[in-house]
Structures are given as C-alpha cells and as structure tokens.
Design a protein around this nucleic acid. Sequence first.
DNA 1: CCTCAGTATTCAGTGATACTATGTACTAGT
DNA 2: ACTAGTACATAGTATCACTGAATACTGAGG
Lengths: 109, 109
Amino acid sequence: MGKQVTEMLKGTLEGIVLAILSGRRAYGYEITAWLRDQGFSDIAEGTVYALLVRIEQRGLVDVEKIPSDKGPPRKVYSLNPAGRENLDEFWRTWSFLTERLEQLREGGK
Amino acid sequence: MGKQVTEMLKGTLEGIVLAILSGRRAYGYEITAWLRDQGFSDIAEGTVYALLVRIEQRGLVDVEKIPSDKGPPRKVYSLNPAGRENLDEFWRTWSFLTERLEQLREGGK
DNA sequence: CCTCAGTATTCAGTGATACTATGTACTAGT
DNA sequence: ACTAGTACATAGTATCACTGAATACTGAGG
C-alpha cells in the first residue's frame, strides 16, 4: 500500500477491528489474514497485536485463551458492551467525516 | 470534538486542506476559520500552519505573500500540478477506505 | 498615548498510532 | 533434525495532530 493509507488508518484501524469483532469473535492472526484479504495488503502483524492489547487494556473486549490444534493457543477476542458503545461512537465520528469529505468532493469538481 | 476525531484526522486533514485549495487559493487563518465553520470545532491553529509548511516543503502548493490591510501579511497557498495529483491519489485511497468500511457497517448489523 | 481585541504566522514539546524488525513457541510433514 | 505454517509479543522509529506560547501588525476606546 502506500504511506497515505498508513496515515489514514490511524484512528480508523481500531474502528475496523471493533467492527469485525462486532460480527463474530476472532483472534489476532485471523484478523490480520482477513484484513490482507480485504486489500489492506501490508498491514503488519505487530500492528494488529498491539492494537488488540490496547483495546483489551481499555476494557473494550473480552478475551478467552483457546488451544489450537495448529500452533500455540489463540487469544480469542469478543466485543463487550463497552466496546459496542465505542463502536457506535466510532461510526458517528466516521459519518461526520465522510459527510464533510463528500461535500468537499462535490464542491471541488 | 473528541480524541477519536483527532486520530481519525491523521492523514485525512491533509487531504481536506488540499481539497479546499483545489477550489480556491487560501491562507492559513482563513482555512482554520472555514474548518471550524464546518464543524471541526477545535482544530488548533498550530495544526493547520504545520500542515501547510509540510505540504509546501513537499512541493504540493505554491505560495505567495500578500499584504493584508488587517494585520501581518498573508501567505496565500494554491494547489499546483503535483498537489493536484496528490489530491487525486488521496481520493482514491479515501474511496478504498470508505468502501471497506461501508461493507463492514452493513455486515455488522 | 497606551492598551486591548482581532488578524495572521510560527515553533518547541507531548501523545497516540502504525510500521519495521525481530524473537518466541507450538505442530505437522519431510 | 529441519522447514513451513500457525500464533503471539515487543523494542525502536516515524508521522501527525494537539498544547501552549510567542511574535507581529492594525484599528478602536479609554
């Protein structure tokens, strides 16, 4: 990807991960793979793990350690009520931004 | 606003300013005022000026110093071809992000 | 004349976030 | 034993927006 995406992801990636977790529980490796699949071609694994640690410490997710038949145990994350509220707030902020930018895009033509 | 917007603005604010400048030339104070008008309630002045210095150094804008009848001279910025190309690239990146997020929003309901 | 409000720019220091690069650990297949 | 794939963790770096303050110019009111 480019440096531009990198900067634009700041603040957004957290929302993306929360949104993923709102649909189903998931673990880090899985989330990283999914993101790559979606075209976020070079999101570093470290980035996702660091982010997961952050949102866990802020109490937005519940964690369960589940043994895997392939490699070390997985840390499975699921969104809790606090996380759900945070996600709602994220969507509100996102909507605000998109509206402003859509206006700008129209006007700039 | 909140900390959430602050982080989400990273990488986006630059595009916003470029988009503004694609419509008309403008100077820092004016841009800040416009942003506040649009609901970016507490964007710090320092932020905009720092951003303008950055995009000037990267050669995306042309600058002209114009005396003001009210206060010190204004630095009026206008988008040059390199800036216009950068703006196009910004819109492409932005579209990519919005598409992914729109999908997630649908799926998460 | 002097101070204050409004206009306009600049800069040093801080905090949050994503990236790079590397290391650890577990399992299965050769 | 070695390798590849799975899975997690972390130290160090860069970028970007914010805070807070300083500087500079003009016109109005006391």
